[in-house]
């Protein structure tokens, strides 16, 4: 009895602080956002405690009052965010997978150094790094000058403020997020199994499809999710590299809170992002469950 009590106290001591922290700083704001998204914006910012579902109506199509009017642009921006985040996941996966494979087969010393290099960008401010991309991509930037210099193009190409620039920037920012989980599952890959597969007649491609891919699927799923979530809500990359042309949902939310001062609408937009992420997590859970049973 006293032993279990002590164990319980011990557990409380260990988990108490993080639990309280999460309750106050994670669930608290979430609940506030959820509540706000069903309120009416105050005239001078803040909220009036009057229930309203029109914040969602503005996004999804049933609001039709003078101030709260449905505009398909919000949904379009939301869909674009989903598309750009998905593209970011795809490109970082394509870049990271071979890199992780290659690095995992290096000698230990070089391997650690290579992993250090992958995480190196974390040491420099994100804003600085993104402005470096502006210098590269703008009409008079390195890329255009290079292309014109070797005669491939005669006029500068609009790289900056396009979907391309945003996906490029986000891929650049989130590659470590994709790389590390991928690496940890690829590193565990048993080379002997690849040999066994080839011994039993499989070509490299077949071995990849039937052995490598299934064995590293946890890393692919994990990396994709922790890349997708911040990419979906990101507003720094689109505001620097997308400008006003490539707005993402994160920019919209930022505007609602900081410029338009319409907190309820901003909250409703944020809840849309939350819902998308939750749906994704549920799908992932289903997928991995099924994977375990097979």
């Amino acid at each position: 009895m006293s032993l279990t009590r002590r164990k319980l106290l011990h557990l409380l001591g260990l988990l108490g602080a993080p639990t309280v922290f999460l309750l106050i700083f994670f669930f608290g704001p979430l609940v506030i956002m959820l509540v706000y998204s069903f309120l009416t914006p105050g005239i001078y910012g803040g909220v009036d405690w009057i229930f309203s579902h029109l914040n969602y109506g503005r996004i999804l199509g049933w609001a039709d009052t003078r101030y709260e009017k449905f505009d398909p642009v919000y949904l379009a921006i939301f869909l674009r965010s989903l598309r750009l985040a998905t593209l970011t996941v795809a490109t970082s996966l394509i870049v990271s997978y071979p890199a992780a494979f290659w690095i995992s087969r290096m000698r230990p010393g070089r391997r650690d150094f290579a992993i250090f290099l992958v995480t190196l960008p974390f040491f420099v401010s994100l804003i600085v790094r993104l402005f470096a991309w502006v210098l590269i991509l703008r009409p008079t930037g390195f890329l255009n000058q290079g292309l014109m210099g070797i005669g491939l193009t005669s006029e500068p190409i609009e790289f900056l403020y396009t979907d391309f620039a945003v996906v490029l920037g986000m891929t650049y920012v989130f590659i470590p997020f994709m790389f590390l989980p991928l690496y940890s599952s690829i590193e565990k890959l048993d080379m002997a199994q690849l040999e066994a597969s080839s011994d039993l007649g499989a070509t490299r491609l077949q071995t990849f499809r039937k052995v490598v891919l299934p064995a590293t699927m946890p890393g692919i799923i994990g990396g994709s999710i922790i890349t997708f979530i911040p990419a979906l809500g990101n507003f720094i990359v689109p505001s620097v590299l997308g400008g006003a042309k490539v707005l993402m949902i994160g920019n919209l939310i930022e505007q609602q809170f900081l410029s338009a001062r319409n907190w309820p609408f901003g909250s409703a937009l944020a809840m849309m992002v939350m819902t998308a992420v939750l749906v994704l997590l549920i799908v992932q859970l289903r997928l991995t469950r099924r994977g375990e049973h097979a």
Binding site: A192, Q193, E195, A196, S198, D199, L200, G201, V211, A215
Partner: peptide, 20 residues
């Protein structure tokens, strides 16, 4: 290449596919 040789191996450390 290994996959086209008419030879199969029982490996010293089995090398079974543990996801199958």
């Amino acid at each position: 290449p290994a996959h086209r040789r008419p030879v199969n191996t029982v490996f010293q450390r089995y090398a079974l596919f543990d996801h199958m």
